[in-house]
Design a protein around this nucleic acid. Structure first.
Length: 296
DNA sequence: ATGAATACCTGAGAGC
DNA sequence: TGCTCTCAGGTATTCA
């Protein structure tokens, strides 16, 4: 389940394979992966073919390929979201199609004059929660995601503003940190891990959080993401990228997520699992006591 | 405006 | 064995 660290691993994994390359041919295998590109697949293909990728950027869980501006006009982008199951692969053009291949971007390398084996950037996505869209004038920040807050790894992320905004909310703290307009990049796994570390129960009311609790939570969100990124950042092959969004973090370091019935690493109490927001929350009943009256 | 619920998706696994 | 059901969850949309 790609959250911020996994998306950053993907960005780092593909960047050297796409920057400086021209998109020669676009194949849309499944139009559902273009759900957010309203003009449709023909328009998507037309706008991409012939453009050169000059960079790859990210905010939260969104990733975008920055395109050159041949007319000296607006600098466009290809906006991508991995959803639940999205992957990017760099493949030889002749390699057989993957099972859930949705979109293929054929790449040319002008610097090598076509002498190398042609490569493709392939978007594979089993559940089609992710997708791609052409973003006009979106190179710096796609307007489609301008409402998304900066993420905790962004140097311009403002902790004081976050503290101020979250305290004006009247909801559970986990709902708040999953809200991408307050802080981006946090998904269910890192939400539970951060809340366990702080520790805070997921239903604690944002309005009654103490300043120290917000500061601590924010610190742990940043820590858990940096640790996950450090573990995932070394796992991809430099030449044939198969970035599957699995940073390798899951197997070793999770203290709460998916740990129901196992002893808490801090106190030994068995970790519990609750249904929450059509998903699950994992928490330690001793370290993260359930609030009473929605307060503490 | 804010908060909460729902639709969108596929496949693995459980239960019968 | 084959069927039905449940579960995984990020985001846009809809409703209160």
């Amino acid at each position: 389940m790609p959250e911020l660290p996994e998306v950053e691993v993907v960005r780092l994994g593909i960047i050297d394979h796409v920057v400086g390359r021209t998109i020669t041919r676009v194949t849309v295998h499944d139009v559902r992966s273009l759900r957010r590109h309203l003009p449709g697949p023909a328009d998507f293909i037309h706008r991409l073919e012939g453009r050169t990728v000059v960079g790859a950027a990210r905010r939260g869980k969104y990733l975008w390929l920055q395109l050159d501006d041949p007319d000296g006009g607006a600098s466009d982008a290809v906006l991508c979201h991995l959803g639940m199951s999205g992957q990017f692969l760099v493949s030889d053009a002749g390699a057989p199609a993957q099972r859930h291949l949705r979109i293929t971007l054929g790449l040319d390398d002008p610097a090598h004059g076509g002498g190398d084996t042609p490569r493709e950037l392939r978007f594979v996505d089993q559940r089609i929660f992710g997708g791609m869209a052409f973003s006009e004038d979106g190179a710096e920040l796609p307007p489609e995601i301008a409402h998304i807050a900066r993420d905790p790894l962004d140097p311009l992320f403002d902790p004081a503003e976050f503290a101020s905004r979250i305290r004006r909310r009247q909801t559970g703290v986990k709902r708040a940190i999953l809200d991408q307009t307050l802080i981006s990049g946090v998904g269910n796994i890192y939400a539970d891990e951060s809340l366990w570390r702080t520790p805070l129960h997921y239903a604690r009311n944002t309005r009654h959080l103490r300043t120290k609790e917000i500061e601590s939570l924010l610190g742990h969100i940043g820590d858990v993401m940096r640790e996950a990124l450090a573990q995932g950042g070394t796992s991809f092959d430099a030449l044939y990228v198969n970035v599957n969004g699995n940073s390798g973090y899951f197997d070793r370091s999770l203290q709460a997520y998916g740990q129901q019935g196992r002893p808490c690493g801090r106190c030994g109490t068995l970790i519990r699992r609750d249904a929450f927001m059509n998903r699950s929350s994992f928490w330690c009943p001793t370290c993260q006591p359930r609030p009473r009256n929605g307060k503490f």
